[in-house]
Amino acid sequence: MHELSVCLALIDQVEKVAQSHHATSVDLVVLQIGPLSGVEASLLKHAFPLAVAGTLAEKSVLEIELLSIKVHCMSCGKDSDAVINRLVCGHCGDYKTQLISGDELLLKRVGLVGIEEAENQGVAHV
């Protein structure tokens, strides 16, 4: 339900990365999302075109890497895969586990256009 506001925060970050590198536009946005982040990847994809309109990322492609849930058992010490509503150890069944992966909501990478030209100009001025 809050995917548009997440998307607007995302574009804000993307634009700042682009501006800090003097890029002319953004052609790629890569996210990492885990099921326990509370954000639905498909809804984020729907919200993305609305959020990028009129920004440096207007023509960018959104790629989402979905990460799986993994837990570390504090009792038996083993790691195992888990599902969103059953985060118990897959080996001994204990619920005293720590999440290793699955709650990510990360901006992983952006593709920037026009960096080299700007950097070359910078060199020419020196």
Binding site: Q13, L28, L106, L107, R109, V110, G111, L112, I115, E116
Partner: peptide
């Protein structure tokens, strides 16, 4: 284009 790792 240049890919920048961000991870935030």
């Amino acid at each position: 284009s240049v890919a920048i790792e961000v991870l935030t």
